[in-house]
């Protein structure tokens, strides 16, 4: 029934072991330099600007996908629409490799955790199963972003956008997940996540 079974098996093995990654962090560093990513996202990918996300240690697939969504006009942020204009797929993948290769770390002046916000944030995170996709340490995986070590003000900003339907991802999971949460709950979750290691 199935012809050429033996050679196909050999080819199958070859097809699943890709030779070298297409993306390149060194090339990505040059693209980041040329497009002045650091001006907003920080010299080592750690943002020093309110409501501007840190990208150091961010998940590679997530960064690639967001850059494509910016380029295609599907995620609308004026500064990024301009920054992502004309970006090739390879440049997006290289940028993602570069930012994911930088060590993540907490905002140096993030302050000490507020017990009430930590408690409520932990409750909300548990009840909405944040750990299922973002993993128990909230470092994310593949197309699911790292949310630990992120700036608290950015987390609050983007959580609010998701809740209010202003931002959509490649799918609508985050919109459905945050539906109905109060402003205080979002503040608490942002505070809780920003204090995860």
């Amino acid at each position: 029934m199935r012809g050429a079974m033996l050679p196909a098996a050999a080819l199958l093995a070859a097809a699943f072991s890709f030779p070298a990654p297409a993306q390149d962090a060194t090339r990505g560093a040059a693209v980041a330099e040329a497009r002045q990513c650091q001006a907003c996202h920080g010299p080592q990918g750690r943002s020093e600007i309110p409501e501007m996300p840190s990208l150091a240690g961010q998940q590679e697939d997530f960064v690639t996908m967001q850059l494509i969504l910016f380029r295609e006009g599907l995620r609308r942020v004026p500064a990024m629409t301009e920054a992502a204009r004309g970006l090739t797929d390879t440049e997006a993948q290289d940028l993602a490799a570069y930012f994911s290769s930088l060590p993540s770390g907490p905002k140096p002046d993030r302050g000490s955790p507020d017990p009430a916000l930590m408690a409520r944030g932990g409750e909300v995170a548990a009840s909405r199963n944040c750990n299922a996709c973002h993993l128990p340490n909230f470092a994310g995986r593949a197309n699911v972003p790292r949310v630990n070590h992120q700036r608290e003000d950015y987390l609050l900003h983007t959580l609010t956008e998701y809740r209010d339907g202003v931002r959509v991802g490649a799918d609508t999971q985050m919109n459905g997940l945050l539906y109905g949460l109060t402003d205080y709950d979002l503040r608490a979750v942002a505070h809780f996540l920003a204090h995860q290691e």
Partner: peptide, 17 residues
């Protein structure tokens, strides 16, 4: 969401009757 270069498309490992 990115282009897969042709040399990484697994056509040679596909099987048909």
């Amino acid at each position: 969401l990115t282009v897969t270069p042709p040399d990484r498309i697994p056509v040679n490992s596909l099987r048909v009757p």
